[in-house]
Amino acid sequence: MHALIASPFLDDYLVLKPDSQQAVKIGARKFDELLTTSADPEARCPEWLTDAARKRWDLDIVGRHLAEAVKVRTPSSYGYGRASYELNLGCNYDCEHCYLGQKKFEGLGWRDREALLHTMRDAGVLWLQLTGGEPTIDKLFPQVYNAAWDLGMMITISTNGSRLHSSQMFALLTERRPYRITVSVYGATAEAYDGLTRTRGSFKAFTTGLAAAHEIGLPIHLNLVITKHNAHELDAMKAFAEGLGVTYNVYSNISPTIHGGAETLPSQSPEFLRERKPFTGCGAGHTHFHTDPHGMASICKVGRDPQVSLVEHGVEGLRTLAEVADSLMLRTGGCSGCALSGTCWTCRPLAKLYQEAKSPLDRYCQHGGR
């Protein structure tokens, strides 16, 4: 089991520790040395690498075989560094604000999932987000996690935290620690939390799971999700995060569903509708992509149409995404010719969903008068 990962990442070459936020940037020459040397099962870790590992992570790999201690990733010509993968849209909560809309329990079988992960590896994906629905309730989550970890990916799990205390999950994440566990927080009390999730006992499951993960020092980040049901507890939610000593973000803008449904919008807390920063572009479709439970790839979680089947086309299917991304970002369908487009707050795919949901302009557009 590798202790480090050496990999190209866009225009750089990095050495990383699977559960660390820190990295060592190396040049092409040193990476090529690792790539060549790793083919020899008897070759030892070079001195410059053992010194860097000790200095950066206090990690001792002196005398270890390079092929065993370091997962050296083969360079890819496809140029992708990140991806997100929805294992399943099913969830054990029933949150009113959920952008997925109808949460169906369905997805690929193991052979197709395994092939999909190899496709992501071949595309150059180094950072992989496992998400859902709730990914940890997916029956194949352990297999997916182990395979991605073995392929040398830096894994982020986006979860509600309700299953982190299970014996299987505890053992898995202790032995093979993730890069990050991002846990959504829906309240500071059982009344608010269970009310938002519409699931009795969800607050207890969340706090139990989070306590278990925190106790063994897993890398936790919290997303504080604010709706009209829990807005009064924002200060308490912040205090909770700060008491744990973990990083957190506050998310308060409620989006339509991925199908352009408006059923999520009533959960918006008007006083917490914040003004977004101007959208100046992103790497969606160019340097990162999203894959749904059926292996259909899109530029991101929002811009899901058109899609390409990675099960059918493999890694070659990704060659179409850059062109798709450029076409989706054009200001069309109600936004073309807008005098404020240069400082627009919202990317075109997200604006399209708001328009399909017949959302009030102030939720996504400067013409809303805010």
Rank of each mutant, 00 (worst) to 15 (best):
L4K: 02
S7G: 01
P8N: 07
P8W: 12
P8T: 10
Y13L: 06
L16G: 00
K17T: 01
P18I: 14
Q21F: 02
Q21E: 11
K25M: 11
K25S: 06
F31G: 00
E33S: 03
T36W: 10
T37N: 03
A39Q: 15
P41I: 11
W48C: 00
L49S: 00
T50S: 13
A52W: 12
A53D: 05
D58T: 05
G63R: 10
G63N: 06
G63L: 06
R64N: 03
A67T: 06
K71W: 06
S77E: 08
Y80S: 02
E86V: 12
N88E: 13
C91M: 11
D94V: 04
C95L: 14
E96T: 12
C98V: 10
Y99L: 08
Y99C: 04
L100V: 11
G101I: 07
Q102C: 03
F105N: 03
E106K: 09
G107S: 05
G107I: 11
R113K: 13
L116G: 00
A123D: 01
L128M: 07
Q129S: 14
G132P: 04
E134K: 02
P135Y: 06
P135I: 06
K139E: 13
F141A: 01
N146R: 14
L151D: 08
M153E: 03
S158N: 11
S158A: 04
H165S: 11
S166C: 05
S166G: 01
S167K: 14
L172C: 02
R177Y: 07
Y179F: 15
V183E: 06
Y186D: 12
A188C: 09
A188S: 13
L196Y: 11
R200Q: 12
G201M: 08
F203W: 15
A205V: 01
F206T: 03
T207Q: 10
A212I: 07
H214S: 10
L222C: 08
N223A: 14
N223W: 06
L224K: 04
I226Q: 00
K228R: 15
H229L: 07
H229P: 00
H232P: 00
E233Q: 14
E233C: 10
E233R: 04
F240L: 15
A241W: 15
E242W: 13
L244K: 06
G245K: 08
N249S: 13
S252D: 03
T257H: 04
L265P: 01
L265Y: 09
Q268C: 03
S269E: 15
P270S: 02
L273H: 10
R274Y: 08
E275A: 09
K277P: 00
G281H: 06
T291G: 00
A297Q: 03
I299D: 00
C300W: 00
K301W: 05
V302H: 01
P306S: 05
P306M: 08
Q307P: 00
Q307D: 08
V308Q: 08
H313A: 07
V315N: 01
E323K: 12
D326C: 04
M329F: 11
T332E: 14
C335L: 05
G337A: 04
L340H: 09
T343K: 11
P349Q: 12
L353N: 02
Q355P: 00
Q355M: 15
A357G: 03
K358M: 08
K358E: 14
R363I: 02
R363L: 15
C365H: 11
Q366G: 14
